[in-house]
Design a protein around this nucleic acid. Structure first.
Lengths: 152, 152
DNA sequence: TTATATGCAAACGCTTTGCATCACG
DNA sequence: CGTGATGCAAAGCGTTTGCATATAA
């Protein structure tokens, strides 16, 4: 889980692009690598910085456009942090899930939907609303950071 | 539930301000009235518009500052809409709850926490995270809007 | 050769800030 | 009087867009 490049993950992202009919250009490959190697969530600015440090001339717009694309393809998801700012996380496109985010290091886990649908169904029945979407975000401290705290 | 001024609600907001040691100035009273009479969620810009329509010279900054204050006092809560933009809702400062928002008219309901804590406790145990905060947002169509649809 | 992708810079929308003025305690 | 509140305009920040260029199918 060190911040190296995860070739398999990178490939998955690129394949998602190609499957959807987009070109796997060098820039998009770079973004895919950066996303795949991000440990936890990241902002667009963060990604742009890292991209430029890799000595590639990559434009701000390209990063935003690539992230947009990946969001549409459900390869990444956009989070609203408690601070009000936005971040992205890599995630599994194939199943509905939610995110558990470490406030200390930013690492995040996908959390399966579990009993939530039943709960939501009940809320819908009680309120009379037809519920069409939901979003659950969990914030906390991951085991590693909790451990590091204890060591101090 | 028409968009009239809800005097009781307005008073509650003003009292929250005073209790916290802030002055209940005419501007803040106006914001309190606007917030109390908002049917559903609203943006800062929306509030500013309405404030100015009431023929009061009120500055953008004042509205933002008042909303900040009310957010701190938990009289309103800031929402992150799926579009990525922000809105505020009036809510009950005394109990933890979540929001059910009508995508069609913007009306919103507080939803009690209910079984969520148990679910979250389980997620925490399974993941090893110490979960410190959570946010659940529900989007759908309220009974009234669903009815209006059916009437068409 | 036609559609797609890119970089750059400017535009944009929302929010915050600096500062002089005003009101309240 | 001194602190707190306000309006205005300007600055700030993250994001998007227009457009000319470059690259891929």
């Amino acid at each position: 889980m060190r911040p190296g490049i995860n070739a398999t993950q990178t490939e998955r992202i690129i394949q998602a692009l190609e499957r959807a009919g987009y070109q796997a250009t060098p820039n998009r490959r770079l973004v895919a690598e950066l996303v795949a190697s991000a440990d936890g969530h990241f902002t667009a600015a963060h990604l742009l910085d890292r991209g430029r440090r890799e000595r590639v001339t990559i434009g701000r717009a390209t990063v935003f456009r690539a992230l947009d694309l990946l969001t549409t393809l459900r390869v990444v998801e956009r989070l609203d942090l408690p601070s009000g700012s936005h971040a992205y996380v890599l995630c599994d496109p194939d199943e509905h899930h939610h995110h558990l985010i470490c406030s200390s290091c930013g690492r995040s886990e996908d959390v399966a939907d579990g009993e939530l649908p039943a709960l939501i169904e009940r809320i819908g029945r009680r309120s009379g609303y037809r519920i069409e979407a939901h979003r659950l975000e969990l914030f906390g401290t991951c085991p590693r950071c909790a451990g590091a705290e204890a060591d101090r």
